[in-house]
């Protein structure tokens, strides 16, 4: 006889929980602890006070928001109609999604490096723009705010688009047919039926896009002006940690970065709660 055991499932979860605690929760807690500690030990708020008093550091919040918020709105705002348009699949879908996934896979470093030449003053883009007469002098796309934003768009848009595409195609197509049979136009069907059903997906896509953009690092360094207009908060944290070796100050900045992301996510989820009261996904499997 063996007694019925329930401990089996706990054993199976153990490695994953150990992983979560040791590699994620513990470092986070450690960072939180460091941020409230002086370099030589002892509790303090000084790391936070210093950040908010230092205009050079404090400004990174606005710099980062000024980069990340507009491009997040653009990415998600474009992804909605594009995902809607492609919701039932189309010819060449595989090719399109392939080109969308490439910038995500290659990552910011390669895209930034490529943009430096391609969008540089003598790059193909400027040559083309001048050839068709749209501009007369090369446009400055790199080493400035615009460069960082473009690089975030190149990888952020496909991310939002592919996420929403998966979401929209999961909505039962009969709902759309039913709406049209009840006399709604295409636009009314989109606005009254599909978009409200997409809201939860849009909210999450926005959150993830924003969080990625807010912690932008390599492209802000390579494509922007890391000592000026694109000195984002991640750069500040990195410099304190690995150039000035002040782990306490760096931890405080990391925590501030996480806190701001949390605030924005909360706001978006509140918006979603107001917009959407149904189940989290409607439609077939």
């Amino acid at each position: 006889m063996s007694s019925a055991s329930k401990s089996g499932s706990k054993v199976l979860l153990a490695p994953a929980i150990a992983f979560l605690v040791l590699l994620f929760l513990y470092p986070f807690a450690y960072g939180l602890y460091l941020s409230f500690t002086k370099a030589d030990g002892g509790a303090t708020f000084a790391n936070y006070v210093r950040f908010f008093k230092d205009p050079w550091d404090f400004r990174t919040i606005w710099t980062t928001l000024w980069i990340s918020l507009p491009i997040t709105f653009i990415n998600v705002g474009l992804a909605i109609p594009f995902a809607y348009y492609m919701r039932r699949g189309m010819k060449g879908e595989k090719t399109i999604t392939f080109f969308l996934i490439v910038p995500i896979t290659l990552g910011a470093v390669l895209i930034s490096e490529g943009m430096l030449s391609y969008m540089g003053p003598r790059g193909w883009l400027n040559q083309f723009l001048m050839a068709i007469g749209l501009v007369h002098h090369p446009v400055r796309f790199t080493h400035n705010y615009l460069g960082v934003v473009i690089s975030l768009g190149l990888s952020g848009f496909p991310y939002a688009f592919l996420m929403l595409l998966g979401y929209v195609s999961g909505i039962n197509p009969d709902l759309e047919k039913a709406s049209q049979m009840l006399g709604a136009s295409k636009f009314q069907t989109f606005w009254k039926i599909l978009f409200p059903l997409m809201v939860p997906g849009v909210a999450i896509a926005f959150c993830l896009n924003f969080v990625m953009a807010f912690s932008v690092f390599p492209s802000a360094v390579l494509l922007g002006q890391p000592s000026g207009p694109t000195r984002v908060i991640a750069i500040a944290a990195y410099q304190w940690a690995f150039e000035k070796f002040n782990f306490n100050a760096a931890s405080a900045i990391s925590m501030i970065m996480a806190a701001i992301e949390l605030i924005v996510i909360t706001l978006v989820l509140v918006w979603r709660g107001r917009m959407y009261k149904g189940a989290s996904i409607v439609g077939k499997g």
């Binding site: 979560l20 450690y30 993830l208 940690a241 990391s254």
Partner: peptide, 24 residues
């Protein structure tokens, strides 16, 4: 709760938890 905790490392960007993790 456990599921959302497991999701966190995917949602929180590396630059936010990476610095304390690197310090460890």
């Amino acid at each position: 709760l456990l599921l959302s905790l497991f999701l966190l490392p995917m949602i929180v960007p590396p630059m936010a938890y990476g610095i304390p993790l690197a310090m460890l």
